[in-house]
Design a protein around this nucleic acid. Structure first.
Lengths: 141, 141
DNA sequence: GGTAAAAACGAGAAGAATTCGCATTTGTGG
DNA sequence: CCACAAATGCGAATTCTTCTCGTTTTTACC
């Protein structure tokens, strides 16, 4: 059960937290906005307020359970922080998000920062593209 | 005069636009929020509304005069789009912004997207660091 | 298990950033 | 220099997110 995961973080094990973590785990391949999560919870008859969704996601971020990304255009998106770091490719037409990791880029980033004598805390790399997937509304543009 | 630059874009040459472009040119090394611009305009006794600042910056972005960046934390920042593309290093402590360009990273990005059959429209790369500048632990850009 | 203190919740208000609506003013082409 | 489309200023409206506060739950401890 999820209880363990949550308990390990030191956060109290509450119904909203269990349900939100559960939902994120079922959709570990997706990048959801707080509102997405809120609506999905409503669909499964969970009576959890939007404020709580934001609170819980922020707390989960704080304890390393989820990652928050700021893509272009308004809302933050959240995803379960399961394992290795990765960057993102976002389709400007359909919003599809794909993940990738490139060691060459990672390495260059580290040396760029090192050259300046700074300390790299984290980075955000998003490639905005037009994807070529069959269900993308703008394919072949 | 700035008139030329603006006229070339097809936008009408108005007082707010001249003043905003002028201000951006005087601070070409900085990354300003719309509110920064608004306040700086007030300081120089220009009576330009915040809505107009947003409008003009967005229009300037549309015609390629300025670039907008979405760093972590709320407001977008704007800078004059003078010449070559570059990415950013942002200090999490003092907000200092530094620019860099790395052809290795640029090239890798292109091939990653190409491999997937997508088209790269643009990208955002921000390295969040702790800088080592003497005036760091403070405000300022 | 029972219970009290601490933490979390839900709902709506508040806040921050940005955009919109509209009456008024201002460039610009003719 | 005129007419009219475009731009402006202002405040209201939107959007996304956080806060407040009265109520409910958890959990540590008896």
């Amino acid at each position: 059960m999820d209880d363990l995961e949550i308990r390990k973080t030191g956060l109290k094990v509450t119904a909203p937290r269990i349900k939100i973590l559960d939902l994120l785990q079922q959709r570990a391949d997706q990048h959801l906005t707080a509102e997405d999560v809120y609506k999905l919870l409503i669909e499964e008859a969970s009576d959890i307020g939007l404020a709580t969704v934001y609170r819980v996601l922020t707390q989960f971020e704080g304890v390393g359970l989820v990652k928050r990304h700021h893509f272009e255009g308004g809302q933050s998106v959240f995803e379960l922080d399961r394992g290795p770091h990765h960057d993102h490719i976002v389709c400007l037409d359909c919003g599809h998000v794909e993940e990738f990791i490139d060691e060459v880029i990672e390495k260059r980033q580290r040396s760029i920062v090192k050259e300046k004598g700074f300390t790299l805390e984290r980075h955000a790399l998003v490639l905005y593209t037009h994807c070529s997937r069959s269900d993308c509304p703008n394919r072949g543009d």
